[in-house]
């Protein structure tokens, strides 16, 4: 009667266990995988592309991405991955109870930050996509992104710059958001090596930690570069006019099909 024996799940034969529980291990591993691969690869590409705003040919890169044949498929895959990763991540996050106040070890802080940055990243990605990609007007924060105007005018850099130059707090949100994404991904890459059993010995974990930290620093540099690149861009009156006309064009029912052909796809190697 005094014996308190909470049964571990390892032995619980509850027939009503949910689908999630029945395939617990698989979902956990897919969660890890979805964070590293689709999301991770995209994040690297995305940040690298954005980095081109600092001296590179950003428009060219963006045009290239937007010329991907099955962009929609890629995008859907990405969305599903993020949704899957975020959804399970939320469930898993609430299965723990951080205790950094008691145990102030580096690893514990990383564990805590991984969860915090997960939340921030999720919120950030939503706002980022909603304002730029879906061109939502969030409380007057209307900063739509266009690769090119309806008339073929290159707008990638200009619209990005407009978005970031919208207000100081937007820069802050972008910095915090991008850092969170970068931390979450690089720390996730580090822990996933333990989870999957790639790095076993403590020295191996440490070495891989350096690699992940280096990747994280590189991505941080990319994101900072992108932000600087966006801030440094001088938005001309022509840009503003073109953007306004493009906004009007889409708002009045125009579709991508009505726009002029993209020069990049037409004449490859325009240098």
């Amino acid at each position: 009667m005094t014996e308190h024996t909470p049964s571990t799940a390892a032995s619980s034969g509850d027939p009503a266990t949910s689908f999630l529980q029945q395939h617990h291990f698989l979902f956990r591993r897919l969660h890890s995988l979805s964070g590293i691969l689709p999301v991770g690869v995209f994040v690297i590409m995305h940040l690298f592309t954005n980095f081109q705003m600092l001296g590179g040919d950003f428009q060219h890169e963006v045009d290239f991405i937007h010329s991907t044949p099955a962009l929609l498929v890629v995008e859907i895959t990405l969305w599903l991955s993020i949704a899957f990763h975020a959804g399970l991540g939320l469930v898993y996050t609430f299965s723990g109870r951080p205790n950094v106040r008691r145990y102030r070890y580096g690893g514990n802080w990383r564990y805590y930050l991984q969860r915090i940055t997960g939340f921030i990243a999720l919120g950030f990605i939503f706002v980022h996509v909603a304002t730029l990609r879906w061109r939502w007007d969030l409380f007057g924060w209307f900063t739509p992104f266009y690769v090119r105007g309806f008339d073929g005018q290159p707008l990638a850099h200009a619209t990005t710059a407009m978005a970031l130059q919208h207000a100081r707090w937007v820069v802050a949100i972008y910095l915090i958001g991008a850092m969170s994404v970068v931390y979450h991904w690089s720390n996730g890459l580090w822990t996933s090596a333990i989870t999957w059993g790639v790095t076993i010995s403590a020295p191996a974990q440490r070495r891989w930690g350096y690699v992940c930290a280096a990747l994280g620093i590189a991505l941080t540099v990319f994101s900072l570069g992108a932000v600087v690149g966006a801030l440094k861009y001088h938005v001309t009156d022509e840009d503003r006019r073109s953007i306004r006309m493009t906004v009007d064009f889409y708002e009045s029912g125009g579709t991508d099909a009505d726009t002029k052909p993209r020069p990049h796809t037409a004449t490859h190697g325009h240098e």
Binding site: A10, F25, Y105, I194, T195, I200, S201
Partner: peptide, 26 residues
């Protein structure tokens, strides 16, 4: 199964507090 190894969150406090220095994270 649920509650198994994949529920580890890699905070690695275990190895810090183990009085016998067991390489738990390994």
């Amino acid at each position: 199964t649920p509650g198994g190894v994949s529920d580890c969150g890699n905070a690695q406090n275990c190895v810090q507090v183990c009085p016998k220095d067991i390489p738990l994270t390994e």
